[in-house]
Design a protein around this nucleic acid. Structure first.
Lengths: 217, 217
DNA sequence: TCAAGAGGTATACAATCGTCGACACGCACA
DNA sequence: TGTGCGTGTCGACGATTGTATACCTCTTGA
């Protein structure tokens, strides 16, 4: 699995790797591959299982961290305070994801490649992972953030959109190191825009009442 | 180029195609490939040029259509009317993109595969195409829609995010035919949420003043 | 008229590929 | 004690790959 990741990270896609190639890079006999995996799909799913659960757990744990620090979002009874804390939460989450992709650059690159790749099995597995992250995010948010009049389903839809958009932001982040600070701001801004929109759609008076300028990020 | 598209559409990625394979499928001698293309990257870029400009032109033309029909968005001096027309424009644009990907299913699938694929050349070309579409969208919107207090740069950032998100919506649309109506609604809703957010961020009083419910889509 | 070149073909070579059958080692368990 | 079984190795097979060299046939333009 390590050998496959290293080989795929440079230029190739997982499915285009040669069985012999991987075995050679791992210092093993080509046939040994069959002892462990049936397919390359099989190998891919195994790798995704490992790294995917690590990512998911890391994200959850990190989202819990502020809650343990006594960081608790208001129920918007004080709109100004609620909005400010929403911004802080968005910033924390974005930083988290971007740090993760920097720490797991190779795995992330290869994984995303499979998201729209050739193997239906891997595509489905990646979509399930992203969806799982969105579900996690929704549940965590519901426990911490009381968005006024925003239902569970609405929140899930927003989370899904955010997760998918972060795929692109993450790619930019990796590919354009000189613009990292700017990209991070763009991502935060995008998330805030969405929540602003969600609130404005349900309780527009809340925003004008708060008389809070949208943060100039 | 046709042969390559047909071969890639089923399962494979462009870069993983064999030179001989494509030539065989096109009824030509393997070496003939070299008469026309240097690389597979070369072939890919040529294909993207053709289909990309077609898509871009199609989108522009279709965005111009409502303007010619006398469809003209207000400057939000009447907020309720402006918001309603913004919704109509969003619906029109979403339908447009989704129709296009249905009509060019193979090309779209292959293209997106290259967006996060192995070849840096193709990746860059695809990113340039998406960015170009976002720029087009921004210019068209500026000519038709006077969003209050939303600057050119802000609009471009929103357009970029929309284009990228439509990549995912389009994939869902192709892969889940039974949910097409629902996915279309989700896409429209996403776009409206963004614009709602952009307006709320700059002129929150406008939304509460309009006393307009967010469309229940 | 004829030379150049674009497009297409045929043959060949060395590599690499996935996979098969057979064999070897070591541990676990009856 | 011995017998599966998981793991790894070896050699070989036919197929396919990218590309090099050489040759053919039109079209074009001076």
């Amino acid at each position: 699995m390590e050998a496959a990741l290293e080989l795929a990270a440079t230029t190739r896609s997982l499915a285009s790797l040669g069985l012999r190639e991987v075995a050679r890079h791992a210092g093993l006999n080509p046939n040994t591959f069959y002892r462990h995996f049936k397919d390359f799909d099989d190998l891919g799913v195994a790798m995704l299982d490992e790294l995917g659960t690590e990512l998911r757990a890391g994200l959850r744990e990190a989202r819990m961290r502020p809650a343990k620090k006594g960081f608790r979002l208001s129920d918007f009874s004080n709109p100004a305070e609620g909005l400010a804390q929403a911004q802080a939460l968005a910033r924390e989450s974005v930083g988290l994801v971007l740090d993760f992709v920097m720490d797991h650059r190779e795995a992330y690159t290869v994984g995303i490649r499979e998201l729209h790749g050739t193997s239906p099995v891997m595509r489905q597995a990646m979509q399930d992972l992203l969806d799982g992250i969105a579900v996690d995010m929704t549940e965590d948010l519901l426990g911490v953030l009381m968005l006024p009049a925003v239902s569970h389903e609405e929140l899930l839809a927003v989370a899904r959109v955010i997760v998918r958009q972060m795929v692109f932001f993450s790619m930019d982040y990796l590919e354009q190191p000189s613009r990292q600070a700017e990209i991070k701001r763009e991502a935060e801004r995008f998330i805030l825009l969405l929540f602003w929109g969600a609130i404005a759609a349900r309780a527009p008076e809340l925003l004008s009442q708060a008389k809070l300028k949208f943060p100039a990020i």
